[in-house]
Write a protein that binds this DNA or RNA. Structure first.
Length: 360
RNA sequence: UGGGCCGUCGUCAAGCGGUAAGACACAGCACUUUGACUGCUGCAUUCAUAGGUUCAAAUCCUAUCGGCCCAG
């Protein structure tokens, strides 16, 4: 009997091609599009087109219809609000810089959607992510591996996947190049073949996340002082949530050299500014860890690591600390290590694991 | 009130008679399934104001306004 797979279809090219590929390969495919929020809930009253819009749902449905398989729309709005949007707001309220995409993958796609899929008697789910999975008989563990198209590799946002989730997930695009996917979409005559890649935070309009936090989520954010490394006041900031470590644009202050956000202090409501060289650090601590290629980190391990999505990995030594946190020591100083963001570890193409940065 | 200095883009700042450098800020675009970084492009027909000298002035002269310093 054919394996039943539910494909998470965003309405974009990638997931559409993923579905088409699985169908071709003989899987019994159905599609699912997630309704994650209503426009009114995120402060949009006009017909602005963003992620999860009606058009996206219809794109997905039309692709499914064309390929001849079932298509579901799941309303995960309340979960999305609780697990992703609220987390996002809380993170900023605490001076961190969260990554909502990772939370969405972790708490929605690979948990809630997977559960729903299994409930509907599917064997697994599939997404259009560029990544690969592989069962390693030697260790008895499921591995998450980088995509063939390294320029599109998305393992960074998938590091939180559990063994159970990996065992029930297919990434049909892992062995393809983005350019090949576009061509396949054209050949299949998919309506979204030329649709631009998604970007920016899906639930925030026009990239104005600070406005979203203040106006929709009502995160308090008072004006305060910009200070230099010595504590001298340099000017006024618009509220700490407007800034993240390493940020240069939007400070509105002019100096001989460009200045960057070096630190944020919620207690004093100050934002510390400094030159480029003040941003580098050689170590960080991380918590909320998830391990993939290993069961647990019990002793120091040499890995490569990256602290943001589009970044070249550098070698680092990770070692366990007390209470479930770890210390990451880089060979080369890293720029703008930011609390709240994820640090992901690799061993060649394998994702070793990752966690949330606690301190830079 | 005498004496001296200075007023060039939002900020800092070149220019010193030949037809407005640069940096920072800012904006747009590119990059990007987070926030950032980065890259590219744009950004003073005008040099405090008003006259004058000159073929030609931000650059010289005069006056006015504004700021600074020393002397009182």
């Amino acid at each position: 009997m054919a394996t039943k797979v539910m494909v998470a279809m965003s309405g974009g090219v990638d997931s559409s091609v993923a579905a088409a590929l699985l169908k071709e390969q003989g899987y019994e495919v159905c599609g699912a599009t997630l309704k994650l929020f209503a426009n009114e809930d995120i402060g949009i009253t006009d017909r602005t087109r963003i992620c999860c819009s009606l058009e996206d749902v219809e794109d997905a449905r039309s692709v499914a219809y064309k390929m001849g398989f079932e298509h579901f729309v799941f309303n995960f709005g309340s979960h999305f609000e609780r697990e992703v949007i609220t987390r996002f707001a809380r993170g900023y309220a605490h001076g961190q810089t969260p990554n909502p995409c990772i939370d969405c993958n972790r708490y929605i796609k690979f948990s809630l959607l997977l559960q729903r899929a299994l409930l509907l008697e599917n064997d697994c789910i599939a997404t259009g992510h560029y990544a690969r999975t592989e069962y390693d008989a030697a260790s008895g563990r499921w591995l998450l591996k980088k995509a063939k198209d390294t320029s599109k590799d998305q393992t960074y946002v998938l590091y939180a996947m559990t063994q159970e989730e990996l065992a029930h997930t297919l990434f049909p695009l892992g062995g393809l190049l983005k350019s090949e996917v576009r061509v396949m979409a054209q050949e299949q005559g998919l309506i979204n073949a030329r649709k631009p890649d998604s970007q920016d935070i899906c639930f925030v309009k026009d990239g104005d996340y600070a406005g979203f936090l203040e106006n929709v989520m009502e995160v308090p954010s008072a004006e305060g002082d910009f200070i230099d490394m010595q504590g001298n006041v340099l000017g006024q900031h618009k509220g700490i949530i407007h800034y993240t470590i390493g940020q240069r644009k939007g400070l509105g202050l002019s100096f001989e050299m460009p200045h960057y956000v070096v630190a944020k202090d919620m207690q004093t409501n100050t934002v510390t500014l400094g030159g480029q060289d003040a941003l580098f650090s050689t170590s960080l601590t991380a918590g909320d860890l998830n391990w993939i290629s290993i069961e647990e980190l019990t002793e120091p391990m040499q890995v490569t690591a990256k602290t943001r999505y589009k970044q070249q990995e550098t070698s680092a030594l990770i070692r366990p600390l007390e209470n479930g946190t770890i210390l990451v020591e880089f060979d080369q100083p890293q720029r703008a290590v930011t609390p709240g963001q994820a640090v992901v570890f690799y061993d060649g193409d394998n994702v070793v694991g990752g966690g949330t940065i606690l301190q830079g």
